[in-house]
Design a protein around this nucleic acid. Structure first.
Ligand code: MN
Ligand code: MN
Ligand code: MN
Ligand code: MN
Lengths: 221, 221
DNA sequence: GATTTTTTTTAGATTTGTCTAAATATTTTT
DNA sequence: AAAAATATTTAGACAAATCTAAAAAAAATC
């Protein structure tokens, strides 16, 4: 696989994430995600189109081509393996790993990444519960659901969280919720969307709708 | 400490190494070391001078300032810690680590590097035997000597090697010489500079002048 | 369906790091 | 001490990635 600049990689990865949720990615969306101007984004889209990483027609938004998706998955693989390394081996907290991995992900040496993967014991998910693509770009798609959409009185297991901030981590630690935690929703209140949840051998907890929106669950494995 | 671009860091590090051996570093020397044109080098020297990292007067060559040396030592610290990680944890061979560390060294997050240092057990030297600066920029200066200058019949210990290529590694492995190996020089031949050396419990070995020039030794610890 | 608003693209500049070719300074040789 | 050779700097250009402001296209509103 060819090599891409740090900028190109950041755009490619951002498009990948944005196109997960919805149709074509728009210029403004991408510009906001990457903190550049829409004008810069258009320039880069032309370039990535030329390199056949992108399907792009002016004014129509864009999607990654098959080749572009492969590149994206390789960047995501690097990012998540480094996140795992930082959390597991260097004892960084959850909210610290993302920013550092944002830089490390651009060191694109295949042998390095595969050796790192092996050293870490081929982890399946990163510290936020997101799956790590394998060398060929295969990525596990566990059908997770937002906690707000989970049926009442049904045991669930936390599989991932979508907010990676220190503030969210503080709250989750206080409530003793982490990736893998089992819980069930006892009651939901329409007034503010808050809910009462039950963890094994713990008193009932109340969590806000805002928190619930950032927690993703699945059936107890 | 401020942040510098990848290019700036590569120049700074190269100057540091070049000025170790001799007086002022010259434009052509540096251009050759970094694989750029002399013109580009002059441009960069002006820039680094402006940033007070360099003492530079046109046509007179350059040396790092105190501040510039600190920056250089911080880059070298990152480089050598990653080299150690790659060799020790990811099982890369000696000749592979340098190229990868050349990229990793530019991820300049102090906390990352200090945690890595701790994780590795605060190693004193990198896989080639070169000392690793500490957080404050202190670097051990063991007074090593080139094997070609070592007195005959005197026990020596290999402390470092200056060629990091796979070809040199192949030869050293064949001769069973590595960092820490004890040896003494039995005989030197003026004709081609070759020498016979003795390792404990091994038959006499002959090595070329070229090899001896890249091996550095010290008194048996 | 015309008008207004929003989105996207284009035009033109700027910064960084690089190059080649030409000019200038220094060093070496005669 | 001139002349020749070498080293260094300057001049001018270019690619990449960014920006702001203006123009053009699309979408939303009336
Ligand atoms: Mn990044
Ligand atoms: Mn993550
Ligand atoms: Mn480097
Ligand atoms: Mn080294």
């Amino acid at each position: 696989m060819l090599n891409y600049s740090v900028s190109e990689e950041n755009y490619i990865k951002a498009i990948y994430h944005l196109q997960q949720m919805g149709q074509n990615v728009t210029t403004n969306q991408l510009a906001a995600a990457i903190h550049t101007s829409p004008a810069s984004t258009t320039d880069m889209m032309k370039k990535l189109k030329n390199k056949k990483l992108l399907n792009y027609k002016p004014y129509q938004g864009f999607r990654l081509s098959v080749g572009g998706s492969k590149v994206a998955l390789s960047i995501i693989r690097r990012h998540r393996l480094w996140e795992y390394f930082l959390a597991e081996k260097l004892k960084f907290t959850w909210d610290e790993v993302h920013a550092i991995a944002e830089d490390l992900e651009h060191v694109s040496n295949t042998k390095l990444i595969n050796r790192l993967d092996e050293f870490l014991g081929f982890p399946g998910v990163d510290p936020h519960g997101d799956p790590i693509p394998d060398e060929k770009g295969n990525i596990a798609t566990h059908a997770k659901k937002c906690l707000t959409d989970w049926p009442l009185q049904t045991t669930a297991q936390v599989v991932s969280v979508s907010d990676h901030s220190g503030k969210m981590l503080e709250l989750l630690e206080h409530k003793k919720i982490k990736i893998g935690t089992k819980l069930s929703v006892r009651k939901k209140f329409d007034f503010d969307g808050s809910m009462e949840i039950k963890l094994p051998r713990q008193p009932l907890l109340t969590i806000s709708e805002q928190l619930a929106k950032n927690i993703f669950v699945n059936h107890d494995a």
